[in-house]
Computed example of a mutant assay.
Amino acid sequence: MSIKKSLYLPLALVLAGCAHNSPADSASAKHWWWPFGETAPKQQVVVQPDPKVTQAWLDEYEPRLREALKDSRLELERRDNLLVVTAPVDASFNPDRPSMLLPVTLGPFSKVAKLLEKDPKTGVLILGHADSSGQAQLNRELSQQRAQAVAAIFRLSGLQRDRLMLKGLGSDMPRAANDSKEGRSLNRRVEILVTPQDTLVALLAGYNQPSKTTAVVAAGQIK
């Protein structure tokens, strides 16, 4: 079955916990998903990553990702200890079927997925974002569906379950004001956060602790 056809199939997901917390014990577990009906990985101890190792990894992967994204509408940004690939919704998803990727995006996404799949130490977090128009719950669901559509490409490319997570954030993390058409367009996006797996586990732990989330965002690690 081709990737394009596979994206049109319903995606089965299972509720799971985040990072080092057990799904049964974590109050925020219900917000995190491992794609495609699989159980959560075993508990992981959060180890503070070595900044030098992380920066060396970023130095190696940034030019490789830029080459994979060349001539596409996807954007690449380096944020502290992350590489972030941003897919603008207006250029990436079908306007008539808002959670379906346009065929033109499959090639660039597949190139990125294949590049990352080869490195078992790499982790990927896919975040769906919406603008503030309409009902908040519907926006959150749509952002989740868009994150799932992108995750499908990474999973079909061979990325293992313990290296791939996703979340729909709705309009919780805008990157522009929602009071203009241009601002709302910027806020409708899917972000692919790429980093060494140890760094990703530490990042997810910060998400699991609401008191630290603001600090994470302020540091520019997630928008």
Rank of each mutant, 00 (worst) to 15 (best):
S2K: 10
K4G: 15
S6P: 04
Y8R: 08
L9C: 14
P10M: 08
L15S: 05
A16S: 13
H20W: 09
N21S: 10
N21C: 14
D25S: 05
S28L: 11
H31Q: 09
H31N: 11
W33C: 05
W33R: 03
T39E: 09
P41I: 07
K42D: 07
P51N: 11
K52H: 03
K52E: 15
V53I: 12
W57N: 01
W57V: 08
P63G: 04
L65H: 01
R66A: 14
R66M: 11
E67A: 13
E67C: 11
E67T: 03
K70E: 12
D71F: 09
S72F: 06
R78N: 00
R78W: 00
L82D: 00
V85D: 03
V89A: 01
V89I: 11
D90M: 04
F93K: 02
N94V: 09
P98Q: 14
P98E: 12
M100R: 11
M100L: 09
L102C: 05
P103A: 13
V104G: 07
G107F: 08
G107N: 08
P108E: 10
P108M: 13
F109A: 00
F109R: 04
K111L: 15
V112A: 07
A113E: 01
A113V: 11
K114A: 14
K121G: 09
T122A: 04
D131E: 14
Q135E: 15
Q137S: 06
S143P: 03
Q144V: 01
R146T: 12
R146M: 05
A149R: 10
A152T: 06
A152E: 13
G158M: 09
Q160L: 13
D162F: 13
L164T: 11
K167W: 09
G168S: 12
S171H: 02
D172P: 05
D172Y: 09
P174L: 10
R175P: 05
A177C: 10
D179C: 04
S180P: 08
K181I: 08
K181E: 11
R184W: 00
L186V: 01
V190W: 00
E191S: 08
V194E: 00
Q197P: 02
L203I: 04
L203Q: 13
A205E: 04
N208K: 15
Q209K: 01
P210N: 12
K212D: 14
T214Y: 09
T214L: 14
A215D: 04
A218D: 15
G220I: 11
Q221C: 15
I222V: 07
